[in-house]
Amino acid sequence: MYVPQALPEGGELDLPHGAARHAQVLRLQPGDALTLFNGEGGECRATIIRMGRSSVQARIGAHAAIEREAARRVHLLAGLMASERMDWLVEKATELGAASLTPLLTQHCALRLSGPHAAKKHAHWQAVAVAACEQSGRNRLPLIHPPRPLAEGLAGQAEAGDGARFVLSLKPGAASLRAACAGLPAAQTVTLLSGPEGGLSAAEEAQALAAGFTPVSLGARVLRAETAPVAALALLA
């Protein structure tokens, strides 16, 4: 269970609302064991010491420096999609080990976000990532960025320095992502750019190429906007 705070061995803590509710749904009782993590690596065994109607208290055990991260850090830039599809992508990208995910505002986005609505969606995606970590056993949270324009996302990657950059493309002549992966060192950082339901426009793909992205293909079939980056992450893991 995710607890966004320090977890000192031997300490006692009141579980935050989400974790407490999870423990209650599982019908845990005093004396039962659970695993806690704070998203910064490793995890702790803990023991329930008190179950209340709306609160749960646990005693923290020893910290175990367990790592389940992929050797290769993959930063995903994905065109903003319809709500349920974006939720699914955040969930699966987290399970597959993406180091970060940046939703991009592009020409063909089906969803437009700004102001409080954007902030609410961002918080929701962070919660989806937490739940995916809890389900999959991942103990480091991916960084979920707020939505930003494509140009801003590309500029951020340019400032990040070294690392391979790929953009999923349907253009003839795009190299196979599988073949491109074969030539990469196992620990090579990768930035992967994928479009929304309508894909990237020709001008947007040209922007990506100018920013140092290499066009790559997942094969002859056209995959859904939420499926393509998941398939690519599986190849890159």
Rank of each mutant, 00 (worst) to 15 (best):
G97H: 08
P116M: 05
M81H: 03
T35D: 15
A82T: 06
R72W: 12
G39E: 04
A118S: 14
H75N: 13
E40C: 02
V128R: 15
I49K: 14
S54E: 15
W88R: 07
I48H: 02
L34F: 07
R50T: 01
F37I: 00
T35Q: 14
A99F: 10
A110F: 13
L28R: 10
H108I: 03
L104W: 06
M51W: 03
V25E: 12
E69P: 12
V56N: 07
G39S: 03
T47A: 11
T35H: 10
G97K: 07
L105N: 12
A98C: 09
L76C: 12
A23D: 13
E95A: 04
L26C: 11
H117D: 15
K92D: 11
A118N: 02
H63V: 00
L76Q: 07
G115Q: 07
R45C: 04
A71G: 06
T47Y: 02
H22D: 13
V130S: 14
A99L: 08
C44Y: 00
V128N: 13
W125Q: 01
L36A: 03
Q57K: 13
R112S: 08
L89I: 02
A118F: 12
K121D: 12
T102L: 09
R68W: 04
V74W: 06
S54W: 03
V25Y: 06
E84G: 07
M81E: 07
S54P: 00
T35M: 09
V56F: 01
R45K: 04
E84M: 03
R112A: 06
E91F: 01
P103Y: 11
I60F: 00
A23T: 13
E69I: 09
M51I: 02
H122T: 04
W88C: 10
W88N: 08
A23K: 10
S83P: 14
L111K: 13
A123E: 15
L77F: 03
H108V: 01
V74Q: 07
C133M: 06
S114V: 00
H75W: 09
D87H: 08
Q57A: 09
D87G: 11
I48G: 05
E84T: 05
A99V: 06
Q24A: 08
A82V: 08
A131G: 10
P30L: 08
A119P: 10
A82P: 05
M51T: 01
L26R: 14
A82Q: 13
E134C: 01
G97F: 08
W88F: 14
R53H: 15
A93G: 03
L105C: 13
A23Y: 04
G31I: 12
V25K: 11
L36Q: 04
L76W: 08
F37H: 12
L113R: 09
A123F: 14
T106W: 06
D32V: 14
L101E: 08
A123Y: 12
R68Y: 01
E134Y: 02
Q29K: 15
A23N: 10
I60T: 07
S114C: 05
A46H: 05
G79N: 12
V25N: 08
L113W: 11
E43C: 09
R59S: 10
K120F: 09
H63P: 15
L104P: 00
L80E: 14
K120T: 08
S83F: 14
A78W: 05
